[in-house]
């Protein structure tokens, strides 16, 4: 780097890219190979929950966990802070 480089504004965008990709790839891998009804189930659950609580799309997570015969449908809903309700 040249000694006058400090005059330039550095844009460190690679770390932003990495964070976005990490989340996205994890999300897409989780959905891969799972039953096709999961996204639809997630959408409909979100609609029901929204009748009572003001949550955004990212606060409802639906996952199928465990393998073999025993599968567990894991639904987690992050409720907003009291101030936002």
């Amino acid at each position: 780097m040249g000694m006058f480089d400090f005059l330039l504004v550095k844009k460190q965008t690679a770390s932003v890219a990495k964070d976005r990709l990490r989340i996205l790839v994890a999300h897409e891998r989780a959905g891969r190979g799972g039953p096709d009804y999961l996204p639809m189930l997630q959408r409909e659950l979100l609609e029901v929950i929204r009748k009572y609580v003001n949550v955004d799309a990212e606060s409802v997570k639906v996952d199928l966990i465990g393998d073999g015969e025993n599968k567990v449908l894991d639904i987690s809903v992050a409720l907003p802070d009291r101030s936002n309700v």
């Binding site: 550095k10 844009k11 460190q12 965008t13 690679a14 890219a17 990495k18 990709l21 990490r22 790839v25």
Partner: peptide
Amino acid sequence: RVETGEMLSIGDVEEIL
């Protein structure tokens, strides 16, 4: 560009994938 933080590094891509 990796050094200036503008491009994903080899390690970044390996870690993500």
